Amino acid sequence: MAPASFHSNSTVCVMDASGHLGLSLVESLLQRGYTVHAAVQCHGDSQFDGISCNKQNLKIFHSDPFDYQSIIDALRGCSGLFYNFVPPEDQPTYDDEFMVDVEVRAAHNVLEACAQTETIDKVVFTSSITAVVWRQDGNSLPSDLDERKWSDVNLCRKFKLWHALSKTVAEKTAWALAMDRTINLVSVNAGLLMSPDLSISHPYLKGAAEMYEDGTFVTVDLDFLVGAHICVFEDVSSYGRYLCFNHVINSPEDAFELARKLTLSSPSPPQSYEHDKKITQQRISNRKLNKLMVDFESGPRLE
């Protein structure tokens, strides 16, 4: 028996809609029959030119996560929000603790705006696996890491894991506000997104060697990530956090193939490559999401 689906106003907002995830969400939601409010920080609309489906139901909003009224305008009339943070163009990336404050303020503003928008029934908040895996007792855990675990903010700060710290604190801020304002919030904690422009400088990769050794270095394909977002939105039984990945980097071969994708040159395998076939035990579970997505259909839904 298929899970119950979300039946409400078919207008949803995607914020920020300018990145790989946002653009793909917009296109998939349009294909499923939704009217989509695509909220972007930049003032150009050219990023939507490549959308192959009918754009009649696409409305573009220029929305700044630090401009409360612009968020309200984008959310007006929507039953749901797909929120993922994209750093402002004039702000640095995850090089220091400054980005923590930026991402937390953005999350707070967006959740507060949702609380003030009567039509919003559900919020899908994109977070990261990095908000889960960094723990002082990582090697001594009796079972796999799952959605019940949180990264240790003191550990993240100590080792300057700014991406993990930002994602952890921003997600905790969103959950606190959602509980206080009775917002129906679900989070999707994504592994490293295998996007075309992925490079070795991606902040998720800070501590990659440690994640690999711990069996918690995971990646996710864009189509799978988009499907997970739509699934947790449409399924009325979804709740809490969902760890989202469809590949575990836990062998020398996996690590070498990823290194080739991340660098412009093709690195040579280490001398021990042919002899070292040791598989690191996977110590992170996405069982909760996989169970929810068993009956999910990624094709058109609405008439």
Results as ranks from 00 to 15, higher is better:
Met1Gly: 12
Ala2His: 12
Ser5Met: 01
Ser5Tyr: 00
Ser8Phe: 00
Asn9Ala: 12
Cys13Gly: 04
Met15Tyr: 15
Asp16Ile: 04
Ala17Leu: 00
Leu23Pro: 04
Leu23His: 09
Glu27Lys: 03
Leu29Met: 11
Leu29Asp: 10
Leu30Pro: 11
Val36Cys: 00
His37Gly: 01
His37Met: 09
Ala38Trp: 03
Ala38Thr: 03
Gly44Tyr: 15
Gln47Lys: 04
Phe48Leu: 06
Cys53Ser: 12
Asn54Val: 01
Ile60Lys: 05
His62Glu: 01
Pro65Arg: 07
Gln69Phe: 12
Ile72Ala: 01
Asp73Tyr: 14
Arg76Lys: 14
Gly77Trp: 07
Gly80Trp: 01
Tyr83Trp: 02
Val86Thr: 14
Asp96Phe: 06
Glu97Met: 08
Phe98Lys: 10
Val100Tyr: 02
Arg105Ser: 11
Asn109Gln: 09
Asn109Glu: 07
Leu111Ile: 07
Cys114Tyr: 03
Thr119Cys: 09
Asp121Gln: 13
Asp121Asn: 13
Val123Arg: 01
Thr126Asp: 10
Thr126Arg: 08
Thr130Glu: 15
Val132Cys: 02
Gln136Ile: 12
Gly138Phe: 12
Ser140Ala: 06
Pro142Thr: 12
Leu145Met: 11
Asp146Val: 04
Trp150Thr: 06
Trp150Gln: 10
Leu155Phe: 09
Cys156Ile: 07
Phe159Ile: 13
Trp162Leu: 07
Ser166Met: 08
Ala174Cys: 11
Met179Asp: 13
Asp180Phe: 03
Arg181Ser: 15
Arg181Phe: 12
Arg181Val: 13
Thr182Ala: 07
Ser187Gln: 08
Ala190Gly: 08
Leu193Pro: 04
Met194Thr: 00
Pro196Trp: 05
Asp197Gly: 10
Leu198Phe: 06
Leu198Arg: 02
Tyr204Glu: 09
Asp214Met: 10
Phe217Val: 00
Thr219Val: 02
Val220Gln: 11
Leu222Asp: 07
Val226Met: 05
Gly227Lys: 02
His229Asp: 14
Val232Asn: 10
Ser238Glu: 09
Tyr242Gln: 03
Phe245Arg: 08
Ile249Pro: 06
Asn250Glu: 05
Ala255Thr: 03
Leu258Asp: 01
Arg260Gln: 14
Ser266His: 02
Ser266Ile: 12
Pro267Ser: 08
Ser272Ala: 14
Lys277Ser: 14
Lys277Phe: 09
Lys278Gln: 14
Arg283Glu: 02
Arg283Gly: 11
Arg287Gln: 14
Met293Tyr: 02
Met293Glu: 08
Met293Gly: 08
Glu297His: 15
Arg301Gly: 15
